[in-house]
Simulated scan of single mutants.
Amino acid sequence: MTATLTGVDVAPPAAPAKRRRPVPGWLAVVPLLVFTAIAFGVPALAMLNGAFTVKDQATGASSYTTGNLTASLQGAYLTALTGSVKLSAVSAALGTLLGLPLAQAVVTSRSRAVREAVLTASGVLANFGGVPLAFAFVATLGNAGVLTVHLHLTDHGWDLYSFWGLVIVYLYFLIPLMVLTIAPALEGLRTQWREAAQNNGATGVQYWRHVALPVLAPSLLGGLVLLFGSAFAAYATAAAMVGSAVPLVTLQIADALSGNVLVGQENVALALSLDMVLVAGLVMAVYLPLQRRSARWLA
């Protein structure tokens, strides 16, 4: 206690309370990093290990070599890899060309209900694939499908179980995916740009050629790459529909793992998976910079 001039005892000031140290923000992402490491890291390491491992069938000894990667780029495996790249490229190009005008029609529609209905349906159809999609097309456009029989499509050379038949099936989910991808970019086109072009005497074609398409080019290329990756990774639809009629790398991987063609080719299947990962990595390396460039234009 201390005395003051007025004679009243006053307690000394209390010591300041210790401030708690703030919790680092990066701790919040630790669970996500752990999950990612377990769900993606462990399989990736197992794939890398198997892709470079050869097991002697006689002794059971394992050794590291690049023989599996060499085998994955030869013969039927190389044909399947190039077939997947060709199918994905053609499907992605057609999906981009058909999805852009459809997305433009949706974005410019005056009916909010129509716009929301189409975008919702696109979100559903973009994720509709696998065996149900294959069954739907087989029942509709297969050799004994409803439309095939009524329209006599086989007389005109139609074959669903072919390269172009598979392209049409892939477009069923690639076009809606393109609509979802390009719609935000189309909504970012400012009306002032069109008005300025019209005031300077530009036609609609000139506006799209010199203004809209250059601005949308990064988004269009990004959507094309995204569609390519989606088609490249598809498996169940092609497996249920064409089997081995169309050479695809995903089908070759399944055959090698199950031993349908040759026994003991599991590590070659892992090498094929590594080839797919490298192609997907190249796709993402192209896609991400395009998305960032498009975001700067349309922000």
Rank of each mutant, 00 (worst) to 15 (best):
S122L: 14
V118K: 01
L78C: 08
S63L: 15
P16C: 06
R112E: 07
W26M: 10
Y77Q: 10
A71E: 08
V54I: 12
G129I: 04
G7A: 07
A61V: 14
R20Q: 10
R112Y: 07
T66Q: 14
P132M: 14
K86I: 07
K18V: 13
G7L: 07
P22H: 14
A117N: 08
P101S: 10
P24Q: 12
P16A: 13
T6K: 11
K86T: 10
D56L: 13
L98H: 06
F35A: 07
V118I: 14
L32I: 09
V85K: 01
V10D: 04
F35R: 04
R115F: 04
A80S: 06
M47Q: 07
G95M: 01
A28W: 11
R115Y: 03
R112F: 10
V106F: 06
A117V: 12
L125E: 08
A117M: 09
P101G: 06
R19I: 15
A92T: 05
V8T: 13
A76F: 08
V90Q: 02
L119A: 08
A93Y: 02
V29F: 13
A28K: 08
G75W: 04
V118F: 03
S84C: 02
S109G: 09
V8D: 11
V118A: 08
G25M: 14
G60E: 04
Q74T: 12
F128K: 02
G83V: 04
S109R: 11
S91I: 01
T65Q: 15
A80G: 06
A58H: 15
S109D: 09
S72V: 06
A17I: 06
G123R: 00
L48N: 10
T70L: 15
L81V: 03
S63E: 11
S111G: 06
V10N: 00
A11W: 07
G50P: 01
P22W: 15
L94W: 11
G67P: 00
A14T: 09
L78M: 13
S84I: 01
A103G: 00
P13I: 03
S63V: 13
K86D: 03
L81E: 00
P24F: 10
N127M: 12
V124N: 03
V34E: 03
A11L: 13
T96A: 12
L48Q: 09
L27D: 03
R20D: 05
F52T: 12
V118C: 07
L102P: 01
R19Q: 15
A28I: 08
V42E: 03
A17W: 02
A126G: 09
S72N: 05
G7M: 05
P22D: 13
V23F: 11
W26G: 06
L100W: 09
P16Y: 09
L33F: 12
G41I: 02
Q57V: 14
N68F: 05
V107C: 13
S84Y: 00
W26N: 05
A44R: 01
A105E: 07
S72R: 05
V10W: 04
L32E: 03
L73Y: 08
A51D: 01
A37V: 08
V124W: 10
F40V: 15
P43Y: 04
L32N: 04
A93P: 00
V85D: 00
V30Q: 07
G130L: 06
F52N: 02
T120Y: 12
Y77T: 08
G95Y: 01
